[in-house]
């Protein structure tokens, strides 16, 4: 039997051939010391509370996740990744327990009160997220006094 083609191998080959937006300049904002920084998570796993509003495929808005809500559903519409990992341990995508531990031992200043989830299924240029959903989410993060954002792509 020939070796089977692995899903991650196929997906990486596909994605690596896609054009991506090119930016002439890199945004650069010096953060406060990590021990004083407020940290938030932004993920593309389309997480939402069970029974809560789910993101549709290609949605360019986002879901607001209260930090106290830990029973979340993996709303991402793709079958092309390991969906069981989040079921086994949500921290592998949404590491709020780890951030709580880092806040408790003083490594980070605090964990933000709200976190945010986008839909990972997007058009290749992600133009609507760049021009609309992304800046709106950034405004919410700034309103919460967030200094550092941890992006977890799915």
């Amino acid at each position: 039997m020939p070796p089977k083609t692995l899903g991650d191998t196929m997906l990486r080959a596909h994605v690596s051939a896609l054009p991506v937006p090119e930016f002439a300049e890199t945004a650069w904002t010096p953060p406060p010391p990590l021990s004083e920084a407020r940290v938030a998570v932004v993920t593309t796993a389309a997480l939402h509370p069970e029974g809560g509003e789910a993101l549709t495929p290609f949605a360019t808005t986002y879901t607001v996740l209260d930090a106290s809500q830990r029973k979340l559903v993996l709303g991402h519409w793709s079958q092309n990744f390991d969906r069981s990992a989040f079921t086994i341990d949500p921290n592998v995508v949404y590491p709020l327990d780890r951030l709580d531990e880092l806040a408790a031992d003083g490594t980070i200043g605090s964990v933000a009160p709200r976190h945010f989830a986008f839909a990972g299924n997007q058009p290749d240029d992600v133009s609507a997220v760049r021009l609309d959903g992304g800046p709106a989410c950034a405004a919410e993060l700034k309103a919460d006094g967030v200094d550092v954002v941890l992006l977890t792509p799915v």
Binding site: D8, D89, N91, V93, V148, L150, V154
Partner: peptide, 27 residues
């Protein structure tokens, strides 16, 4: 890491902390 596991290993807090430590070190 496998797609769908951005922190690498479910159920392995030490490994997840290692990923976070390396990410935060970039700051």
């Amino acid at each position: 890491f496998p797609i769908g596991r951005p922190l690498g290993k479910p159920g392995d807090a030490a490994f997840q902390h290692d990923v976070l430590r390396r990410a935060f070190a970039l700051l």
